[in-house]
């Protein structure tokens, strides 16, 4: 465990806490894509199946349980408890366009052709594009609340910090995993446009509004 990975994990955790607090305090999930949240829940459930078979560390186990539980909780809050506030008219991205290609890619490019490994690979590919429905929703409405922007910034930073972790591990331990590195680059690149708007607008106290 190095500092980049720890910061990445904490940033990821912070993103989830910010999102949960936003929904809970405002009693509303307006501006949040339920499609992206469903994809994230699928990502964590398929990736952390190894909770049952492999013990890595208490930290690892704790975080996995937190990510699975909170992703399911968010989907529950959006589709059941605060369903009336869910912005389904704008959340129209077709998730099968992400689910099917990532599944096919996982079947073709993986470390080992076993069910657990293919699901793990699928989760890595799916995670890299899971934010697209959310970005699509922001582009459709043309704006995002600042709390939603903070959530997206923390969520986007997490894989960016993991990229630094992989560079560090490559030089320090000669460890690398091309599947996660390429997917992590794709994932981080998808946030670049948002990062630019966040730094130039939200951090200066303005609302994130897309140019008309």
């Amino acid at each position: 465990m190095n500092v980049f990975r720890l910061l990445g994990d904490l940033s990821h955790l912070l993103a989830i806490i910010v999102l949960l607090l936003k929904i809970w305090k405002t009693r509303s999930c307006a501006g949040i894509s339920g499609k992206s949240q469903i994809l994230f829940a699928i990502v964590y459930i398929t990736r952390y199946l190894d909770l049952i078979t492999t013990y890595i560390s208490a930290y690892n186990m704790f975080m996995k349980i937190i990510f699975i539980a909170t992703s399911i909780a968010i989907v529950y809050l959006m589709y059941v408890k605060f369903k009336a506030t869910y912005d389904h008219n704008h959340d129209t991205f077709r998730i099968e366009f992400l689910l099917l290609p990532t599944l096919v890619l996982a079947l073709l490019i993986n470390h080992e052709f076993t069910i657990v490994e293919i699901l793990w690979t699928f989760s890595i590919y799916l995670e890299s594009v899971a934010i697209l429905p959310q970005l699509f929703l922001v582009s459709k409405t043309g704006e995002a609340e600042s709390i939603t922007s903070h959530y997206l910034f923390a969520l986007g930073s997490y894989r960016g910090l993991y990229l630094l972790n992989w560079i560090y591990r490559y030089y320090g331990e000669n460890y690398y995993d091309l599947i996660v590195i390429v997917a992590g680059i794709v994932q981080t690149v998808l946030y670049c446009d948002f990062f630019y708007l966040y730094i130039t607008k939200v951090l200066k106290g303005k609302k994130l509004q897309l140019p008309a």
């Binding site: 690892n60 470390h111 076993t114």
Partner: peptide, 10 residues
């Protein structure tokens, strides 16, 4: 290259 089914990262 890591072993399959032993992913230590989140």
């Amino acid at each position: 290259v890591p072993d399959a089914e032993e992913h230590d990262e989140l």
